[in-house]
């Protein structure tokens, strides 16, 4: 069921009007479309995991290569240049869909359950820092970072990054101050 929903979602996101709408606003592009593509991959993952169990077992030991791939692909797509290129070059746009679904969404699912708590928390810390940093870059930058988007949209995106970073930070803080073993 899940892989089918994932596939439908993936194809739906690729429809030109849907893609155009989501790409028309900078923050939708980065914080709505890209995660949705990754989620579609995440949903499709069980299909591949069942089809090639050996591959995942052998090459994704303890989930570490997978999570590194996920992290780096997601980071790549937060570069302003990458977003511009996706809008101007068809090949990059295609690569965006493929990489986010199959090189970010799938490895995330294939890795997450295998990871130790240390690695899981490391991923949260990494994204908190990355989002905070990207937020500051987008907010502080005096110049237009993307040719296809206005500077005011850049500020919106900056706040988007910052608010997500703050939400993640709250999550990390509660991890530190609340000991789940008190309750579970």
């Amino acid at each position: 069921m899940q892989p089918i929903i994932g596939l439908i979602m993936f194809l739906f996101l690729m429809l030109p009007p849907v893609a155009n709408l989501l790409e028309s606003i900078m923050i939708f592009h980065m914080h709505m479309q890209m995660p949705l593509i990754a989620i579609s991959g995440f949903l499709m993952a069980p299909f591949f995991m069942e089809k090639f169990p050996k591959f995942f077992a052998k090459w994704n030991e303890r989930g570490i290569p997978g999570i590194i791939l996920f992290t780096l692909v997601m980071t790549y797509w937060s570069i302003p240049r990458a977003m511009d290129d996706a809008l101007t070059m068809y090949s990059v746009e295609l690569f965006k869909f493929i990489s986010l679904a199959f090189l970010a969404g799938v490895p995330l699912r294939a890795s997450w359950m295998k990871l130790t708590d240390f690695w899981k928390n490391a991923v949260f810390v990494f994204f908190t820092l990355q989002y905070g940093l990207m937020g500051l870059i987008y907010l502080m930058s005096d110049s237009q970072l993307c040719n296809n988007y206005l500077q005011s949209e850049q500020i919106t995106l900056g706040w988007g990054f910052l608010t997500v970073a703050i939400a993640l930070l709250i999550y990390l803080i509660q991890l530190v101050i609340i000991d789940p073993s008190d309750y579970e």
Partner: peptide, 10 residues
């Protein structure tokens, strides 16, 4: 394999 796959990913 772990080292190889990490190397490939990187």
């Amino acid at each position: 394999p772990l080292k190889i796959s990490i190397a490939v990913v990187l």
